[in-house]
Write a protein that binds this DNA or RNA. Structure first.
Lengths: 148, 148
DNA sequence: TGTTAATTAGCAAGGGTTGCGAACTAGATG
DNA sequence: CATCTAGTTCGCAACCCTTGCTAATTAACA
């Protein structure tokens, strides 16, 4: 679902209009693997579409998430992050620069304990640590990525 | 570190005064396995100590967390939860009533991908789903637990 | 009992997000 | 192409959760 045509169809299916704002945001999100927050996506979008509203960014992102086009990821750094990668994966958050990376998990954890009556619909795994640019030995200053 | 005496010592070590507020909050937290938010702990505390301030609750919980006496858990439901269980475990969050339960994980996930240069200091795993009281078949209305 | 550094409480302010309503527009229709 | 209207956008106010600041209070030591 990366081509403009396919996007248009997806939107039409859901009775969503193909507005310039939606096209822009959808495109930006897919060019971007930094797991941006609404705020940082807004900043990028503003450059290409000066009058765009932060409100619209939130709204559009929420809609895309409902459509199953992207995930909302809460990595505990304040703002939610948006991730167009819908494959089964988890996240690594650099506690120094705030960067978020996708992480694949080989083993599926098994639960024990509990009554067994639980219905689990989603598992969120977040690794916190330091990325290559921020490991203690590295003298270079931490790359300040969107923490918002 | 459950007895009042041990608590007093711990505090003394850290040059923290043994105030009534701290004693109360520490005690309440350990009687409580519901992973309360600051707000809900505040409500409980207020019954026993009417004038206590929400500010003090936040402050005290923050201090206890720094002391390694409790964990701050962000399960993505808005407010942070506080958990005196410092053993290696993860959390299950009912998406209907907001209840939080401890979950033990048998398998430790192995990471693959990435450069291997990551330094992982913490892994947060949160399961989302429905608890016994809230599974779809149950007709009783979801138990509304502290979602704050 | 006095002294002092730590603590409390209250309020204001901050970040992130959402509700609301008025103005606007994509897309269907004629 | 003009019209119509449901769906959108945008700006603002308001919301929740949390923290900064400060004056008043108090635990703990001498």
């Amino acid at each position: 679902m990366h081509s403009p045509t396919e996007l248009a169809e997806k939107f039409r299916e859901k009775q969503l209009k193909l507005t310039p704002q939606r096209q822009l945001l959808f495109g930006l999100l897919h060019q971007n693997d930094s797991h941006p927050s609404a705020e940082s996506l807004f900043e990028v979008a503003s450059k290409q579409m000066p009058g765009i509203s932060l409100r619209t960014v939130y709204q559009t992102l929420g809609e895309l998430a409902e459509m199953g086009e992207l995930q909302l990821v809460d990595v505990g750094t304040g703002a939610k992050r948006f991730d167009p990668n819908m494959t089964d994966h988890h996240h690594f958050v650099c506690e120094s620069c705030g960067a978020v990376r996708d992480v694949e998990i080989a083993a599926k954890p098994k639960m024990r304990g509990g009554s067994g009556k639980f219905v689990i619909s989603q598992v969120g795994v977040v690794f916190h640590g330091r990325c290559e640019n921020c490991v203690p030995t590295a003298k270079r200053s931490p790359a300040q990525q969107a923490k918002k």
